[in-house]
């Protein structure tokens, strides 16, 4: 490429472009792992976690203009990721396919090497996760989001920012959410 062409390209890039907010591409590079893992921790399925991640980044694409501060992007993404993942779980449990899939996955997944013991252990683990998710659904907002965002490694300040809360209340909300979760889980699963 000639020098002139290079100048032409540089000239045509607007000056106002690079502010504190990251570009979409940068945001993807920096945060897609956290978003995918946050989604996966809830949906427990790679394909679904990919769907959730895509939805989250499409929302980011549409809202990037309103996220002026680069620091706000990660908490925002994780909040949208956990909400989207919960919605995904909800809509799937409505269709009633989930349990069947778990059974099928447990049977097929560990059929090769694990033998009957592996199948049982896997099934039990999936049942536990299933019960934990159902318990989580009954924890009220904003306690549930506080719990989940804490779980994703956000600081109290980031959680407060993502959920528009007073930072001083985040600790209490996490504590209450956790107790509520344990109470409901005890009822559902009868474990612990």
């Amino acid at each position: 490429m000639s020098e002139r062409a290079v100048e032409a390209l540089v000239d045509s890039v607007p000056e106002t472009v690079h502010t504190a907010a990251p570009s979409f591409d940068e945001a993807f590079t920096l945060h897609h792992r956290a978003v995918f893992r946050a989604a996966y921790s809830l949906v427990r399925d790679s394909g679904l976690a990919e769907d959730v991640t895509q939805e989250v980044f499409l929302k980011l694409y549409q809202h990037l203009g309103s996220l002026q501060n680069g620091e706000h992007v990660r908490p925002w993404l994780l909040r949208v990721a956990t909400n989207t993942a919960l919605n995904t779980i909800r809509s799937r449990s409505r269709t009633g396919t989930r349990e069947e899939e778990f059974v099928a996955a447990a049977t097929v997944g560990s059929g090769g090497g694990g033998g009957p013991v592996g199948v049982e252990a896997d099934y039990e683990r999936r049942t536990e996760i299933e019960e934990a998710r159902r318990a989580l659904e009954q924890v009220k907002e904003p306690m549930r989001s506080c719990l989940l965002l804490k779980q994703q490694g956000l600081s109290y300040r980031e959680i407060a920012r993502a959920l528009s809360l007073n930072e001083a209340n985040v600790g209490s909300l996490i504590a209450r959410g956790r107790k509520e979760f344990k109470r409901v889980y005890g009822k559902i699963g009868g474990r612990r």
Binding site: H32, R33, F36, R37, S46, T53, Q54, E128, I129, G153
Partner: peptide, 19 residues
């Protein structure tokens, strides 16, 4: 129950292209 699973691999390229 809800730990981000570090063992699960993140399909970066697949995500990049589909997004």
């Amino acid at each position: 129950a809800f730990a981000p699973d570090d063992a699960v691999s993140v399909p970066t390229e697949a995500l990049r292209s589909r997004i």
